[in-house]
Simulated assay, not measured.
Amino acid sequence: MAKSYLESWKKAKDRFEKATGKKKPDPKSRFGKLFSKISSTGLESALKSYDAAKTVKDAQKHARAFKTAASSYIPTLDTAGKAAKQDGDAVYAEACADMVASLNKIAGNVTMDLERFDDLPKDLDGFFKSPYWFKLLQKQAKKEYSLENIELYDMILKRKLSKEDASEKAYKDYVELKSPKEVNIKSATRKSCKQIADQGKWKAMPWDDVAFDLAENLCDTVVRLQEAIATGEA
């Protein structure tokens, strides 16, 4: 199920109130913009609408509204935090900083989450190129205790194993028999890798063959992810 960003913001506010015993800074207070006529931050209404969005057009509109509201409110929090720090109220200052961090995190997650309105990636590599779908695939792999497949395939896909030291480490971590994160690949592929390792020719490691075997396992994970999405469990 899609995450509730409104709930995330409410939790941030609750943390602030529990820590300080006060309400969050008012936009119309002395910490807000000079002569501000804003009566509320607009954050809750924007996030409520975003959470309820059913189309990418609506989601983009409400995401923009949230980001505008957040960028308008963050200066208020920053000013309130600085004033509290000058007054020696470290708790209030830290609580303001925590709210700023929460807003920035929500904004980043909303940007990534917009991809949930797109269709499923057309191929396996598409899951690795999309932050949103990659995160869901990782979550599914974690359920299946197969994160090692994700980790190694991602390194191969991004060409991170071209250097000898990186290739050697990946072999000893993922491919070598009884390695800490041993992946399930064909015996013939593992044998070829061992021959290269025994010769110390790390740059010649057949990573494309390893990736092919990993892809077969990951395709099964993708199928189970699709089933989880269809039943609302992802």
Rank of each mutant, 00 (worst) to 15 (best):
Y5H: 11
S8T: 11
K11E: 15
A12E: 01
K13T: 10
A19G: 02
G21L: 08
D26K: 11
D26P: 11
S39A: 15
S40I: 14
T41K: 04
T41F: 05
A46D: 10
L47A: 02
K48W: 10
K48P: 07
K48H: 14
K54Q: 08
T55V: 00
T55Y: 00
T55I: 02
Q60R: 04
K61Q: 05
H62F: 14
A63L: 05
R64V: 14
R64A: 15
T68W: 12
Y73W: 10
I74V: 03
I74T: 02
P75V: 12
T76V: 06
L77H: 05
T79S: 15
K85G: 07
G88Q: 03
G88F: 03
V91M: 00
Y92M: 08
A93V: 05
A93C: 08
A95C: 08
A95F: 01
M99K: 00
A101H: 03
L103M: 07
N104V: 01
K105S: 15
K105D: 14
N109T: 14
V110K: 07
T111L: 11
L114A: 01
E115V: 01
E115C: 02
R116N: 05
D119I: 05
D119T: 10
P121Y: 06
F127S: 07
K129N: 12
P131S: 12
W133E: 01
L136V: 07
Q138F: 08
Q140L: 05
Y145A: 10
Y153G: 07
D154G: 11
M155P: 00
M155E: 12
L157M: 11
K160Q: 08
K160H: 03
L161K: 10
D165A: 10
A170Y: 00
K172N: 15
D173Q: 09
D173M: 04
D173C: 05
Y174I: 03
K178I: 03
K181N: 11
S187D: 14
T189F: 08
R190P: 01
K191G: 03
G200R: 09
K203Q: 12
A204N: 14
M205V: 07
W207K: 04
D208K: 13
D208G: 12
A211H: 09
A211W: 06
A211G: 15
A211T: 14
D213Q: 13
N217M: 09
D220H: 07
D220A: 04
V222C: 07
L225M: 06
E227L: 12
A230H: 09
A230E: 15
T231N: 13
G232V: 06
A234V: 11
